[in-house]
Design a binder for these strands. Structure first.
Lengths: 252, 252
DNA sequence: GCTTGACCCTCACGCAACGGGAGGCGGGAG
DNA sequence: CTCCCGCCTCCCGTTGCGTGAGGGTCAAGC
């Protein structure tokens, strides 16, 4: 069977202009033309259009759809995966926004001033994009990084807020301990180091003692991380570093 | 507090260009400029930007956002509430899309594994470790995959054969029905579509109506899958697709 | 005081994925 | 033979920015 543009358009619930467009870019060219130049679509064309609309509804750009469809017997899996990542990424962003909105509502009720960071993030005070890029460069392709992003994508705003709360609670306790003058290799400090390790394991990735000490060294080596801990309390980065090492040695 | 474009851009995770654009169209003009012409944003600007980004993420066109924000001139709380609702709704939609993609990936896996009869028979003798490794490499990381393998790991060869038998029984019945001339939106066809959904849910992963229609579309979209059904009976893929849609609509 | 390098500025063109109109043939029903 | 609807090909418009080009500004370090 052969169909005109208008018939195809009505059947597939798209406009004629859309079909013209698909023809122009070579995504879907009618199998033939009449003597007068009218486009003639056949059943195979209709089938292809079905595919196109299905992929489009999943959010694929036309160019990528063309790649998928024109690679006969080719594997659409990489494309599907890529799209999957894009979508989960977007979901993550939306969740951050929901959290930010909730925070804004809360602040409104309590008449609290929000810092710009609070306004746009639930997290601490580093730029998450910068952080993601940094993380990618440092740990990209590592198992821990994969785990971390995978889990992060699944967390709800409540999860994030709970995470933040746990983090802050831990921060308060180690600050107190340090202020009390307890040495970094005291049992109490080591216990808090251990808690820190488990916090990471629970929220982000399996954190072995070895990985943990590596992380501890980075807290001293990387000014950005150092600043994070130093801002909580001067000397905390070094204190935590020592406590983590002591803890790791004692468990070995 | 006053901020430069760059600072605002980093905080809100947008590009400087975007802020320039918002300024150009009058959606968000900085509250002031320095002597040198640098844009200066204050806290009120940031608040407005937060609302803008949230509405944008929801798919509102910028012009409409301007109308919404400039109209009441009052309390942002209703905005926040509204956005919260819309955002969570949008997250749901995106999750459906992700589910559909996971299904598409799953469909390929099932197609590859289950279509050839011998492979099905051999499945029980397969080295499970080797198989798991291979599958992990190809499909790792999706929820549907996780569920599917989790259940599959517990299935015995008898289970697989029973699955196969159920599948074939269902296939016989829908072939008969289709041969009888019953329309795809008849109660009988819808009942078989529903059975199909429950078959999937029982054997592989939770299959909601949304996910089911997504799967149905992939039956038409993916040639390999289409071939599977077309081999049972020509036209069955389209028939089943329609029946699944009809069934999903009637249950909504 | 001078040089860097990281910002900032304003044009201004480019992009996807079509929408919509102008101006002009084709074709089948009456 | 006429009508009007449907088809054709340009071709410009839209949205929400990306991405330079080309050039000023500002704080830091020498």
């Amino acid at each position: 069977m052969a169909y005109t543009v208008g018939q195809v358009a009505r059947a597939a619930r798209v406009t004629v202009r859309t079909l013209h467009h698909y023809d122009e870019i070579g995504l879907l060219s009618p199998s033939g033309r009449t003597a007068a130049g009218y486009r003639r679509y056949d059943d195979a064309d209709l089938e292809r259009l079905q595919l196109i609309r299905a992929y489009r509804e999943l959010g694929f750009p036309l160019e990528e759809i063309a790649e998928i469809l024109d690679d006969p017997g080719g594997d659409p899996l990489p494309h599907l995966r890529r799209q999957h990542e894009l979508l989960t990424g977007r979901i993550g962003k939306l969740r951050d926004m929901v959290a930010a909105i909730e925070l804004a509502m809360e602040a409104r009720k309590l008449d609290i001033q929000l810092t710009p960071e609070e306004r746009f993030e639930v997290f601490g005070d580093f730029d998450p994009d910068e952080h993601a890029e940094e993380a990618e460069r440092r740990w990209g392709g590592t198992e821990a990084y994969r785990q971390s992003t995978e889990r992060a994508a699944r967390y709800s705003k409540e999860d994030w807020l709970r995470n933040k709360a746990e983090n802050e609670e831990w921060g308060r306790r180690i600050t107190e301990l340090m202020a009390s003058g307890a040495p970094a290799d005291s049992p109490e400090a080591m216990a808090l180091a251990e808690e820190h390790r488990q916090l990471i394991s629970r929220w982000f990735y399996d954190c072995s003692y070895e990985v943990h000490t590596g992380l501890a060294d980075m807290y001293l080596a990387d000014p950005r991380f150092t600043a994070y801990y130093e801002k909580i309390r001067p000397g905390l980065a070094a204190y935590l570093n020592e406590a983590i090492h002591a803890n790791a040695i004692s468990r070995a």
